[in-house]
């Protein structure tokens, strides 16, 4: 039962956020809260391969951006009523665009993962970064979809029975998707596959000796992670009503890694806390000084050099639990 306290608390906070924002008259709080939810999903998907699987991917923002672009491209074709490649019609239905975003980013992850996972160590870090940069420049070159400027989405995708013009409604849709996503992720990390993945992080050679073809499992995790990031990106495109190559710039990949580390690598709730810490820090520091990244850099440096296990690790130590 105690296990349920944290998730229930988190859901309650996020569910009450629009009310709180209205109460204190600060609409920006709801925006901040929504951004935390979406970045938490992206960071959690990265945590699946980085924290549970031990794969240091430095290009995760690419899948986030691909998911966002799927929404943007489908929307622009729906608007212009010109089928994509003359074959597929566009769409503005969230229940259509989200699954397609997941499938497309999953396919991108399948291709990139199948090639990248042949290497390891620093080469893996660099090749994932390289592929992400290639996707970044690919979208910059797509002048039909705005090139560097990206795509403006006039209206958030529609959901039958909901008024998606209302920002609060969009917020709750994001919350529901996020809760579903984290519930699914909970199943994954506690599944048979999750156990194999944790084993691979600790000792790949041993897993091979147990008869596990580690490459396939790593690739599977890589694809699942790409799909998760794509889902988060698709929501982001709906929320911002905008998508651009900046969403997949390599520094965004760096930020996702920072969120995972800040919260606690390989812990379930870490990415949520990490995303919250990062974005709240940005929100208030940026309010106070334009040089907020200096503060972020210093904090990050101190966290990496002097702490182990991020926020959750610190909480554990405070409780006098395991070291």
């Amino acid at each position: 039962m105690r296990k349920l306290i944290l998730p229930v608390l988190l859901i309650a906070i996020f569910a009450l956020m629009p009310l709180i924002a209205e109460l204190v008259g600060k609409n920006a709080l709801m925006t901040l809260s929504a951004r935390i939810l979406m970045y938490a999903m992206a960071a959690a998907s990265l945590n699946l391969i980085l924290g549970y699987g031990g794969m240091v991917s430095f290009g995760h923002a690419a899948y986030f951006g691909v998911g966002a672009y799927v929404v943007g491209i489908l929307y622009s074709h729906w608007m212009s009523e010109v089928p994509i490649f003359g074959l597929f019609p566009g769409s503005n239905q969230l229940l259509v665009t989200l699954p397609i975003a997941m499938i497309v980013s999953g396919l991108a992850a399948l291709l990139i993962g199948a090639l990248s996972l042949r290497t390891g160590g620093v080469q893996f870090i660099m090749i994932t970064l390289a592929f992400a940069q290639m996707i970044f420049f690919l979208f910059v070159s797509l002048t039909a979809y705005g090139g560097e400027d990206g795509i403006i989405i006039r209206r958030a995708n529609a959901v039958p029975g909901l008024n998606m013009r209302d920002k609060t409604t969009v917020y709750y849709v994001i919350l529901v998707v996020a809760v579903l996503y984290f519930a699914w992720l909970w199943r994954v990390v506690n599944s048979s596959f999750g156990q194999v993945l944790k084993g691979i992080r600790q000792n790949e050679r041993r897993m091979e000796a147990m008869g596990i073809a580690t490459f396939r499992y790593k690739l599977y995790a890589f694809v699942l992670a790409g799909m998760g990031a794509g889902l988060a990106g698709a929501l982001m495109a709906n929320f911002l009503r905008f998508t651009s190559p900046d969403m997949m710039h390599w520094t965004k990949s760096g930020e996702l890694i920072i969120m995972v580390i800040l919260g606690g690598l390989g812990t379930f709730f870490g990415p949520i806390l990490g995303a919250a810490a990062f974005l709240i820090l940005e929100f208030y520091l940026a309010d106070w000084t334009e040089h907020w990244q200096l503060g972020l850099g210093i904090i990050l440096l101190l966290v990496v050099l002097f702490t182990k296990g991020g926020i959750l690790g610190a909480v554990d130590r405070l409780k006098g639990g395991r070291q």
Binding site: V122, I257, L301
Partner: peptide, 21 residues
Amino acid sequence: HLDQVLATFALILIFNQMIIL
């Protein structure tokens, strides 16, 4: 490698802002 990437990424943020300052 992960710690190295992060710590030196932090250095980039710090140096960039100091130069801007």
